[in-house]
């Protein structure tokens, strides 16, 4: 049953919506509009005046090899983060779901990493993998592996992916776990009687029935990898070495605030906005089709 509340006047509803609307206006629409506006200008080196260049900033960006490679980096990074955050979470959820006793305790413990802020998580991982004093780096050295993410592209990427994905595993675990618990036990039993062993059941029954959850998490995690990993990257690699971990969002920051190229930075923000819009549309259009049952 749908419950509807009807208001007599218009004052109360407006008052109720106002705070949220105001916040959106000030912190979202206003900066977004400014970004669009500024993307059409090039400020002079001292920031005293700016010159209208139309789509010049965009033209320049699309030809810029650094910007293009940042696209590739972002694609690799977000794919890896999404996979690294979802697959272990699913695995843990499946294991916890099989437990009869103590599932609650595991669940609670597995939630903890989610409470750690991305920047703090970044620092944590940074300490562990610090080439000189890090515990893990030291052990790797003992094993004969010379870890140095400050110089090595691949290691740098691996580290930011791990640090970004780590805290998200908790979040994803919670959703997967709830999703698994919602699958009627009799379905699993029916499949077992039909002859399906654990993995067969997992791929033919559990995973398809979990697909709404998986789809939701896919969207959420990609968005996370795009926008919320800034703190991790900033603390661990600052986009380096040689831009190997400069994802689009980080480039907006480094070009705008470090490089002081506000025009280009704004244009990048606008492009990012469009990319996210497209991504969301694609995901909903194509993935969702396979989700329904």
């Amino acid at each position: 049953m749908e419950k509807r509340v009807t208001f007599k006047g218009w004052l109360l509803p407006v008052a109720l919506i106002a705070p949220q609307a105001l916040i959106s206006l000030i912190f979202f629409f206003y900066p977004a509009a400014q970004a669009v506006w500024q993307s059409l200008f090039i400020p002079d080196p001292f920031g005293l005046s700016s010159q209208f260049v139309g789509l010049g900033n965009f033209e320049f960006l699309l030809k810029d090899p650094y910007y293009r490679s940042s696209f590739v980096t972002t694609a690799i990074f977000s794919t890896l983060v999404t996979l690294a955050a979802m697959i272990p979470a699913l695995f843990l959820a499946v294991v916890a779901d099989r437990l009869i006793k103590g599932a609650g305790a595991y669940r609670t413990m597995l939630i903890w990493p989610y409470a750690v802020a991305p920047a703090v998580a970044g620092v944590l991982w940074l300490f562990m993998f610090n080439p000189r004093v890090g515990v893990v780096a030291w052990y790797l050295g003992q094993l004969g592996y010379d870890w140095n993410h400050v110089l090595n592209d691949g290691e740098a990427m691996g580290l930011v992916v791990a640090a970004s994905a780590w805290g998200r595993i908790s979040y994803n675990f919670l959703f997967f776990f709830a999703g698994l618990q919602a699958i009627p036990k009799s379905l699993i039993e029916a499949a077992a009687i039909d002859g399906a062993r654990f993995w067969k059941r997992f791929f033919t029954i559990v995973l398809p029935l979990l697909s709404p959850t998986t789809f939701f998490l896919l969207v959420v995690n990609v968005v996370y990898a795009f926008f919320e990993t800034f703190g991790v990257i900033h603390t661990i690699t600052s986009g380096g070495p040689q831009q190997a971990t400069t994802i689009l969002v980080y480039k907006v920051f480094s070009d705008g605030f470090v490089g002081q190229d506000l025009g280009s930075s704004s244009a990048q923000s606008v492009i990012l906005l469009v990319v996210v819009g497209l991504l969301t549309i694609i995901q909903f259009k194509f993935v969702e089709k396979k989700v329904h049952y």
Partner: peptide, 20 residues
């Protein structure tokens, strides 16, 4: 013996049909 190796079939009260 595991259920799949017992050569049985079962009809459940809620039917337990695979919804997808």
């Amino acid at each position: 013996t595991e259920p799949m190796d017992r050569d049985i079939a079962m009809v459940f009260q809620n039917y337990a049909l695979y919804p997808h």
